[in-house]
Design a protein around this nucleic acid. Structure first.
Length: 556
RNA sequence: UGACCCAUGGUGUAACUGGCAACACGUCUGAUUUUGGUUCAGAAGAGUCUAGGUUCGAGCCCUAGUGGGUCAACCA
């Protein structure tokens, strides 16, 4: 391969990093993933996690995990634990777990430094008053009457705030920047507010908490983060980020913004996801229809698929909506390689092979994974009474060129076993097929078929006496609309059929040995994983995703 | 009626210092197949938002427009 062919293109952040490394600005890179522990991680966060950790890996740098825990009202240790579990599940590890709250003392000292430099002041005005005075993008703010308080008074007041001598909302520390700035964030932003809510890590030690803008850049700086990656909505914060770093004279981390991930047919707003949970449209944050990482894990999405997907979507600054089909493709691609095949019948109908001896059970050999010889083979019981899927039989099938499966007088192969011919069937009063009768050709056994017979259709099946029962949950898209987030009320696009429960599926017995979270392919059906609600008495299985189905497409 | 950011097949991302617009998903053919899966071979689909400019040459540089996004929490 020539050097020419070897060339892979870099996205804009990689280019920045390579330039910084080449120019000697940095000798190594440091990134970070900085979630606020106020909820569960979703597929959008996965993009950021993969970006930050993979960048660090590629350039032999490090990626920190830092919890941005500056708002005690919304944050909980449960979320901290959940987020760490999700990142580990995704396949990433970090060194020491870091918290912005570890920097509260330093941040406080920096605030004092700003006050002493005349760059910050304590404002007694209410939030409403401050907002009213902020002006508009084209008209400057009106200065707070407290803007020119003496440094000594500011120091006293801020100390009192810290000590809890003032009520919430009565005072705030503001940076003194530029009241006429076209960037509203520069018009004397609040940098410290009073909160008496106990913090999940620092308890009641503090009564003042830094705002995001006064905490994030400085935390990056403390950790010597070289490239601080965040989403586009923080673009307008960059001047502030840089202002604090400059005024404080600390390590100049660089903020770089990229476009967040949006997925078609999906919602990734934490607030809206919470609505889904609270209003009971889903069973919880880990309902397998949710776009959260916990839900995807429960549904059987392999972490490698999410990593691959995150890499495939690219990194740029353009607003985007990724086709959810790309995620599904990544899931199938991974599972096709890794999931063992088993036999499962979702909507069983009994098939009796009338010329097969009653009571006889023979073992046939089934391949565990046709793409992976090392996965081996397993014996499968075959007998006179089997289950096949209702959809594999048609009373009045179209031409054999169109419909390969079973119908009156049609022949198909039962995979790994014999070719059979349908000889009849029973119906109930409602017209449902209740029993299919067939005969088998003894000389067509897989492996030593001497018949020379050729059939177009191959069916999956389960031997009835040995079959086990399971409840199977079939998931479809939660929303019918390809961009529910853009709707006035995203709930109007909820797909009423996003969950279908199959109560009496019949499976080969080996499925009972699977553990929670293990994923297999039911041949010709899709990928399925053992749900956490499974008990020793009740097997509950989630359909991770169906196979690509060109037959279903043809039928439309 | 301000600032900042963005604009390339249906979707997403490429195109190095200006030089034949490529890759993936999706779609459609065909072959293979004891999974209507996989795999393989192939096809269709954009001339790069618009108008100017610079240049031998512009998706790329410049100007203006248009369209979209973000910003006026004591959230992150």
């Amino acid at each position: 391969m020539s050097a020419e062919e070897n060339k892979t293109s870099l996205h804009f952040i990689e280019q920045i990093i390579e330039d910084d490394l080449a120019s000697g600005k940095h000798s190594a890179i440091q990134t970070r993933f900085p979630p606020e522990p106020n909820g569960f991680l979703h597929i959008g966060h996965a993009k950021s996690i993969v970006l930050n950790f993979e960048l660090a890996k590629k350039y032999k740098g490090k990626c920190n995990l830092r919890f941005d825990d500056t708002n005690p009202e919304k944050e909980k240790v449960d979320y901290v634990d959940g987020i760490m579990a999700d990142i580990k599940w995704l396949g990433y590890s970090w060194g020491k777990t870091l918290y912005t709250s570890d920097y509260f003392e330093q941040l406080y000292q920096w605030a004092i430094q700003l006050i002493k430099a005349g760059k910050a002041f304590v404002d007694d005005r209410t939030a409403e008053q401050v907002t009213a005075d902020r002006g508009t993008p084209s008209t400057p703010a009106t200065p707070s009457p407290n803007r020119n308080r003496s440094i000594a008074e500011n120091l006293t007041l801020f100390t009192e705030m810290k000590e809890g001598k003032h009520a919430e909302g009565t005072k705030v520390l503001r940076a003194k920047i530029d009241l006429a700035s076209p960037n509203m964030l520069m018009r004397d932003p609040a940098i410290y507010r009073i909160k008496n809510e106990p913090h999940h890590r620092t308890g009641t030690t503090w009564h003042v908490y830094p705002m995001y803008d006064f905490a994030h850049g400085q935390s990056d700086s403390i950790e010597k983060v070289t490239h601080s990656l965040c989403t586009l909505e923080f673009e307008n914060h960059r001047p502030l980020y840089e202002w604090f770093i400059k005024e404080l004279g600390i390590f100049p981390s660089r903020q770089i913004e990229f476009a967040r991930l949006n997925l078609s047919y999906t919602i990734t707003s934490k607030r809206k996801l919470l609505t889904l949970v609270e209003e009971g449209h889903v069973t919880g944050w880990d309902d397998p229809r949710m776009p959260t990482l916990v839900a995807m894990r429960r549904r059987g999405y392999p972490p490698a698929a999410i990593r691959n997907f995150s890499a495939k979507v690219g990194v740029a600054k353009r607003n985007n909506v990724i086709d959810v089909a790309l995620l599904e493709h990544a899931v199938r691609e991974e599972l096709n390689k890794t999931a063992n095949r088993v036999m499962g019948v979702l909507n069983p109908v009994k098939l009796v092979i009338e010329n097969y001896p009653e009571g006889k059970v023979e073992m046939v050999e089934a391949v565990n994974n046709p793409g992976d010889e090392t996965a081996g083979k397993r014996p499968l019981p075959f007998s006179r009474e089997l289950y096949i899927d209702q959809s594999d039989f048609m009373e009045n099938p179209p031409s054999p060129r169109k419909f390969f499966r079973l119908g009156p007088d049609r022949e198909v192969r039962l995979k790994y076993a014999y070719i059979i011919k349908c000889t009849g069937y029973d119906k109930d009063e409602a017209g449902n097929i209740t029993l299919i009768k067939a005969m088998y050709y003894e000389n067509t056994r897989s492996g030593n078929d001497t018949s020379g017979k050729k059939v177009k259709g191959t069916l999956s099946w389960v031997s009835a006496p040995q079959a086990i029962d399971a409840e199977i949950r079939l998931y479809d898209r939660l929303f019918n609309n390809d961009n529910p987030a853009a709707l006035e009320d995203f709930r109007t696009a909820l797909n009423p059929n996003s969950l279908q429960i199959v109560k009496n599926a019949k499976l080969e017995a080996s499925v009972a040995t699977l553990t929670i979270g293990q994923t297999v392919q039911f041949e010709r059906q899709g990928y399925f994983t053992i749900d956490k609600e499974t008990t020793s008495k009740h097997l509950i299985i989630n359909r991770t995703i169906g196979l690509r189905d060109t037959w279903a497409k043809m039928q439309k």
